[in-house]
Design a protein around this nucleic acid. Structure first.
Length: 400
DNA sequence: CACATGCTTCGATACGACTC
DNA sequence: GAGTCGTATCGAAGCATGTG
């Protein structure tokens, strides 16, 4: 029996066509402000899955006819040149060739376009602005250029609450105190949102409130991320469908949770550069040794990494660079870092806590887990390649 | 307080990809 | 080949947090 009516409803980018639940006032107020001003500026911040992107997308849908809407995702587009190019292309709606042009030349082209008089207002959204601000290079100068030329409405979207502190002071001043900070969805909020999705995407009578409440509670506890909850609901529905049930039950949720938890690291791992992979393995090895779920970054984890990397073609990088790798892993949300007082030692320790089930990860990459590969379907390819990658590293390093 | 440790920040350098 | 970017790497200086 079919349970899912419309898969698209569970897509990560799906925005319901009716009003947003719980975030609609913010959309309304932003739209009003944009209507009455040429220089509306605001920062929206909050952890992943709290509706930041949904707000921005909703604004564009709402007033798309009267504005030029520009979307820049700073996790992909995060250099001065790339951002300029993207903005120029989105305004002119034609390709822009930046090859061979210097930063100054591109900057001039951009300014020219920004200062052109037009009837439609421009709204620029910088998604994941923290990825831009946290870069070592001064690519955030692009914001200064934009603020100084022409009139644009600007919305900054950030995961980090305090990204503003890293902003160039000249830019920060221009944004003033206009901030929207999004709170976590409560279990009840999540339930309401899930209900909306279930009504849109699932066949009637295949689900009940108890199912949704269970998912909402679980997702709230583990992440507070609404996307997590929606993904879990979808997987649960798939599980029920595969089992040929008429109705989703709690057992399906348990099955689905198993998958959601491992998917993150195992999907990301194969896509990472070699040194990052070895860093992850080193950290996991040490997390297993301490038996308390964390790894000491230096010297322990670094030495483990050195051992792994010793026989690689390019050898191990220095401890200094290893720290930059740790930073990357933090940015990827794979590890969190904390301070600990050192015992029997001076100074202090930095410890890395894996944000994933590292024991399960370790079992899988070591192939010790006999029933690890029994899962069919979409997930198994990525799981196997994570394992393959790790095995290659182990064999090249001559370590087990 | 002087010193140890481990981190962050800043800047220098090397190098590949690209255009002129 | 010169010039320009962007990225990866590393060293020096300095800061924060601890010990004796």
């Amino acid at each position: 029996m079919k349970i899912i009516e419309d898969v698209n409803v569970f897509d990560i980018n799906f925005i319901p066509s009716d009003e947003l639940q719980f975030r609609q006032e913010m959309v309304d107020s932003a739209c009003e402000n944009i209507k009455h001003s040429n220089t509306y500026r605001t920062c929206v911040s909050g952890d992943t899955g709290r509706g930041k992107t949904a707000i921005a997308k909703k604004i564009s849908k709402r007033i798309n006819d009267s504005i030029i809407y520009i979307w820049v995702n700073c996790s992909e587009t995060n250099t001065y040149i790339q951002i300029s190019k993207s903005i120029i292309e989105q305004i002119k709606k034609e390709p822009y060739n930046e090859r061979g042009k210097t930063r100054d030349e591109i900057s001039k082209d951009l300014i020219k376009i920004l200062e052109t008089k037009r009837t439609k207002k421009i709204v620029v959204v910088f998604d994941e602005i923290d990825k831009l601000v946290n870069k070592k290079e001064n690519h955030q100068q692009i914001l200064f250029t934009i603020l100084n030329h022409g009139n644009m409405n600007i919305i900054l979207i950030s995961n980090e609450m305090n990204f503003a502190e890293r902003l160039d002071p000249r830019v920060k001043k221009r944004f003033g105190e206009n901030k929207i900070i999004l709170d976590v969805y409560s279990p009840n909020d999540m339930y309401q949102i899930l209900k909306q999705r279930a009504e849109l995407g699932l066949k009637t009578n295949t689900w009940d409130s108890e199912i949704l409440i269970t998912i909402a509670k679980f997702s709230c506890e583990v992440s507070g991320d609404i996307r997590h909850a929606i993904q879990l609901l979808e997987k649960t529905a798939v599980k029920a469908e595969v089992a040929k049930k008429d109705k989703i039950d709690l057992e399906d949720i348990r099955e689905a949770i198993k998958e959601v938890q491992v998917s993150d690291i195992e999907q990301v791992f194969p896509t990472l550069p070699k040194h990052l992979k070895m860093s992850i393995i080193a950290l996991v090895q040490n997390a297993l040794i301490t038996r308390e779920g964390y790894a000491v970054t230096y010297p322990d984890a670094y030495f483990s990494y050195e051992k792994l990397a010793k026989n690689q073609r390019f050898g191990a990088v220095g401890e200094r660079q290893f720290r930059d790798y740790l930073r990357s892993l933090e940015m990827l949300n794979l590890f969190s870092f904390q301070w600990r007082t050192a015992i029997n030692r001076r100074g202090r320790l930095r410890i890395a806590v894996p944000n994933f089930d590292f024991k399960q990860f370790w079992e899988r990459i070591n192939g010790n887990n006999g029933d690890g590969g029994e899962r069919g379907g979409v997930g198994s390819t990525s799981v196997n390649s994570a394992k393959d990658e790790a095995e290659r590293i182990f064999s090249e390093a001559g370590v087990r």
